Simulated scan of single mutants.
Amino acid sequence: MTMAALIDSRATRAPAQPLASGIARVDVLSDFAAAEPAWRALEASGLSTPYQRFDFLKPWQRHAAAQDNAAPFIVAAMDAEQRPLLLLPLALRQICGLRIACFMGGKHTTFNMALWDRGFAASATAADLDDLLKGLRARDLVDVLALTQQPARWGEQANPLALLPHQRSVNDCPVLAMPVGADPTALVSNSFRRKLKAKEKKLQALPGYRYRIANTDAEITRLLDWFFRVKPIRMAEQKLPNVFAEPGVAAFVREACMTRLASGPRAIEIHALECDEEIIALFAGVADDQRFSMMFNTYTLSEHARWSPGLILMRHIIDHHSARGCRGLDLGIGADDYKRMFCKDDEPIFDSFVPLSGRGQLAASALAALHRGKHLVKHNPTLFALARRLRGAWH
């Protein structure tokens, strides 16, 4: 029996049990179509990050998740009137005989979070989360919830899952706060802007030089074709593995970039600098009213790379999203030097490893210890330098 079939069969047999809090029942779904009404309702008016959009995670599940044998494990908590209170978009994996549920999206999401009804998120208590976990334990479908890279807050709202036992995530996420109405020079200083404008003058001399946000399918296809040719070369220069060569990843990225949201933009939006001769730089990420979050980027292999086109493009993106009222911008997990040029603060993010069965107790403790060890290495310059040398030698 496949994992998805096992989820369906046990979920059908397991009766929903009334719980003490506002949660009246907990459902586990392995089918996107069955989850879609509640998912889209919470996405439209609830609290969530753009990484948990239906139109972002469905392509990931279709194309990339199968290589990890990851079955959809979508947890929906409903109130007594069958209104959705929260939805956890998880994927279930069998690892060493253990059933481990993680957020969908794998390494392609910077932030992981449940989708919440705003009123319920504002009032949720530890007792509510206990009832959620009781509903999951009653079904005996999973041993451990491995809930990593969760933001402590989204917008003005605290993340209710921070009420569970948690620890700092392995990596930090540099972030740029963008107060509404802030002067652009408060986001990117005058001195830095002058340096970038001096470099951009060299590019502006190129015929057809422009900054654009891809809008048509033809533009998106052309930009992604270029990206998938250039990015492997850039990653090889850095002695990094090419994650975009993993089965299904390119197809996931292409579909998400092509999918237009009900609100108008694409599930992944692409920003680019180009001229008539070539594409010069590309940044792609997800966005909502609160945040632009960069997912992937690269820049030209030509001599035009010497004018720092990636930094110039980043300034354009900051100005664009600031003008539309965005409250923050991040450049993804990790403290690369170029990120710190723009993002001076860190987004608090945390991990929770929650056992749901007897054998899950040891596994949850082991996962928590492993991630604490990774955090120690990443935040100790000597250990991190050693790890990078070993990784470079390995590749």
Rank of each mutant, 00 (worst) to 15 (best):
C326I: 13
K339T: 02
R327I: 06
A335C: 13
S365H: 07
S357W: 05
F342G: 04
K344H: 13
C326K: 06
Y338E: 11
L331A: 08
K344F: 09
C326A: 13
Q361P: 01
M341I: 03
Y338C: 14
G360I: 10
A335F: 02
L329F: 13
K339F: 06
S357A: 11
A364G: 07
R359P: 03
F350D: 01
K339C: 04
G328K: 03
M341Q: 14
S357N: 07
G358A: 14
S352E: 02
C343P: 01
D330I: 15
G328T: 13
L362A: 15
L356G: 02
A366V: 15
D346Q: 11
I333R: 10
R327L: 11
A363D: 04
L356Y: 05
K344E: 10
L331D: 00
F353H: 12
K339Q: 07
L331N: 00
K339P: 05
G358P: 00
E347P: 00
F353Y: 15
G334H: 05
C326W: 03
V354W: 01
F342C: 05
R327V: 06
C343I: 07
R340Q: 13
K344Y: 04
D336P: 00
M341K: 04
I349G: 00
D330L: 12
A363E: 07
F342P: 02
D337W: 00
A364E: 03
